[in-house]
């Protein structure tokens, strides 16, 4: 028996891992965190700090066109000295010039109206998809995602050919005698609404679809069995249950739409005020880096609330899913 025991333990040979092994594991497991962490710190967080810093500095005709507020060489004492005389001029300027205020207001307004229309268009489509025969749903879903893979710029550009005064829409309507003078859609808010609804419609449809698809259709049948008309069953059962999808979809359209640049620039013409475009112009046309940085900081502050709503709704949906 003693022999058997000895041979068993020698065959098994369990031994504690060597020091080298453990070092290697500790290092590799750290690297998994450290590499992406450092990358994001360097290329995501620090740039924001710089934006914030430059938004507090003076415009100068130089390259780079601003006078730095802090520089690392001056040390900490200088840092606190300068902190006292920080330059909030750019922010004051933003509040004094109605151009910027109007740009913020009209951005939010345009984004909100577009979101509403995207919901109006997207809901019936998502509902129809969720009710489609199960075998078709993956194909329909792919057809919604497919435009997302084609260039955003191209999709906006496609509308330029349709909406302009001598464009395809007016040609069609004129030839059908619906109208006798071309509609002026291009370079108006309507064109921007169309552009945003079109570009972001998949973002609206996808969360709505996933909320509606999960829903048990027998709930509607139960409601109708208990005396609801189809319409009141929709408003009392379907819509409340799809609310997480509605919130997610609206936020996914609203948040990027507020800061949108390409759509107002290409479809909205020079008259349109939107904050993304203003920032771009301040930066590229006026070369006023401090003011465009301040515009960016305020845009970010503006978006924090909808982003929080979105995160909160997502977290709650995840909990309910469990």
């Amino acid at each position: 028996m003693a022999e058997a025991t000895a041979s068993l333990s020698s065959a098994a040979q369990p031994a504690a891992p060597s020091f080298g092994d453990r070092m290697f594991q500790a290092l590799t497991s750290r690297l998994v965190i450290i590499v992406p962490y450092l990358w994001l710190l360097l290329f995501f967080l620090i740039p924001f700090v710089i934006v914030f810093r430059i938004s507090l500095s003076q415009t100068a005709i130089a390259m780079p066109p601003y006078t730095p507020v802090f520089s690392l060489q001056d040390g900490l004492a200088a840092f606190f000295d300068q902190l006292r005389e920080l330059n909030f001029d750019n922010y004051v300027w933003l509040t004094e010039d109605p151009l910027y205020f109007n740009a913020y207001v009209s951005s939010v307004w345009i984004a909100a109206v577009s979101t509403f229309f995207a919901l109006l268009v997207g809901y019936p489509v998502a509902y129809g998809m969720a009710r489609a025969p199960a075998a078709w749903r993956p194909t329909l879903l792919m057809l919604v995602i497919l435009p997302f893979w084609t260039s955003f710029l191209i999709r906006v550009y496609a509308w330029m050919g349709i909406l302009k005064p001598e464009g395809l829409l007016n040609q069609l309507l004129l030839s059908l005698n619906v109208i006798d003078t071309p509609l002026l859609i291009m370079n108006t808010h309507t064109a921007i609404f169309i552009g945003i609804v079109y570009s972001y419609l998949p973002f609206m449809i996808l969360p709505l679809y996933s909320a509606l698809e999960k829903m048990d259709y027998s709930l509607i049948e139960a409601a109708q069995d208990l005396g609801c008309t189809p319409i009141s069953a929709f408003w009392k059962i379907t819509f409340p249950l799809s609310l997480p999808g509605v919130i997610a979809g609206c936020m996914l359209v609203f948040i990027p739409a507020v800061g949108e640049f390409v759509i107002p620039d290409l479809l909205g013409g020079s008259q349109t005020l939107m904050i993304g475009k203003t920032l771009w112009n301040e930066f590229f046309a006026n070369r006023d880096w401090p003011v465009s940085s301040a515009v960016a900081v305020i845009l970010l502050l503006l978006l924090i609330v909808p982003i929080m709503i979105f995160q909160f709704a997502q977290a709650r949906a995840q909990e309910q899913g469990r």
């Binding site: 995501f44 924001f48 430059i54 949108e260 993304g276």
Partner: peptide
């Protein structure tokens, strides 16, 4: 970055 307006991401990287 998934929800960040592109103009902000672009501007901040340029300044970096």
């Amino acid at each position: 970055p998934l929800v960040m307006p592109e103009v902000i991401t672009g501007l901040s990287l340029l300044l970096l």
